[in-house]
Design a binder for these strands. Structure first.
Lengths: 245, 245
DNA sequence: AAGTGGTCTAGACCACAAT
DNA sequence: TTGTGGTCTAGACCACTTA
């Protein structure tokens, strides 16, 4: 009695499917104990290494919990969260097959930044920051307004790069290891400046993504990406595990 | 000549560390070809299964790329993306110390869903779906309109749960293993129904999160979460991976 | 002491790609 | 044909928990 499907997948995949099917059908409920490896070896007719690999992978995928000397158990449901991937706008446009163009509005070093900027960088006193404002076009239609404040102590020569061809995030990551990222997504009506630069009606919805990055305990960049609500959405597909076929 | 560290970790971990050290030091650069499994077996003095497990895990972690019949190569740096975590609204509100309340607007089984719904579920023919519409309040102010379409074949008795106390996602995950999630975030002006249910001015900005989930190849749920732009934003802080000492 | 999972080996067969 | 990675086995030893 094999109880394993007869498709042309590896044996350990069939064992994984067998276990997932028993969880999915409710036969093995949350926190229930699974048969031991040796039980599965006997009932499924495969070697222990194969059973072990299947159970090990299911454990690393979050479906099982294993305790040496005790047993294997059905794990509680996945952490109560799912993930969204944020890629850079240039790759996104190119992946869609669109034509990308960037227009530099402003490049400057601000010697005496406004209090809000100083606060965002968590500076203990006023320090200069570099500032860039770039519009990204997809097929000559503006889709994103990219505003960045960069800590020159971590990213030297930020203003000297070629903003029209290289993804800024790539440049930053070459300069300093970004160890932490904070995102905030909101929906806001367009103000006059957004409306002008993004060629959209004032008061129309913008999708705004704030991103703040750190290198260690130091704030590296403070960014605001403003998108035309009617022309842009942020998407992702995420596979917690991944099953071939 | 083992070249492996002598700490008390498993052999396959030492092999992984050995490989990562060679990549980290620049000895094996991007796209360079690694020694074959048999080479490593000979030079490191471990069995092929152990080498194979180390290389397999490094591949699944994104450090290597393997091609059957060809060889093993150093993978290009991690994909140019950062992640946003999406948690459920009830936990979010409670984490902020707010008072959560949910109001059920509609619970129904739709025997003949609209074409758009049938298409979203990727059904081959018209099948019934369960439908719920719930408003979530934070301190008695509406913040989210939660609309869900659920596949009854995967989630039996969906309409019978207590929508006011349990996070719906938790309930779903207890019923069926969600293997894939797709998100789409957009900013849109509020229509009449949104304005009424969320007590917001019409045409004001909404932050809309679409979420579609799968169990294997089957669509499990199709959801739309609509938030008042001026009262809600989606946030997260992310720390890229780090190695345990 | 008995049962659990964790690791490791030696050897085998296979599918695949390059030669 | 040769070499690569992919899988699988049988058996072994170990560390750990429970009784």
């Amino acid at each position: 009695m094999s109880a394993l499907s007869d498709s042309a997948s590896p044996l350990y995949e069939k064992v994984k499917d067998f276990v997932l099917a028993n969880i999915g059908s409710g036969k093995w409920v949350q926190n229930a104990r699974l048969p031991s490896e040796n039980d599965l070896v006997n009932s499924l007719g495969v070697s222990r290494m194969t059973v072990h690999r299947a159970l090990r992978e299911l454990t690393s995928e979050g479906h099982l919990r294993r305790v040496q000397g005790v047993g294997t158990f059905v794990a509680p449901p996945k952490a109560q969260s799912t993930l969204i991937e944020v890629s850079n706008i240039i790759n996104e446009i190119r992946d869609r097959g669109g034509k990308h163009r960037a227009g530099v509005i402003l490049l400057e070093r601000i010697e005496h930044p406004a209090p809000a900027i100083v606060r965002a960088f968590e500076f203990d006193r006023v320090k200069p920051v570099d500032h860039s404002l770039v519009v990204h076009f997809e097929n000559d239609i503006p889709v994103q307004l990219e505003e960045r404040y960069v800590n020159p102590a971590l990213v030297p020569h930020y203003l000297d790069q070629d903003f029209t061809s290289i993804a800024t995030l790539e440049y930053l990551q070459r300069c300093t290891p970004l160890t932490e990222v904070e995102h905030l997504i909101s929906a806001l009506p367009a103000g006059p400046e957004q409306a002008r630069l993004l060629q959209m009606p004032e008061r129309d919805s913008c999708l705004v993504l704030h991103r703040k990055t750190w290198t260690g305990a130091t704030v590296a960049t403070v960014n605001t990406f403003t998108h035309v609500g009617s022309r842009y959405s942020l998407g992702s597909r995420y596979r917690p595990t991944h099953k071939p076929a």
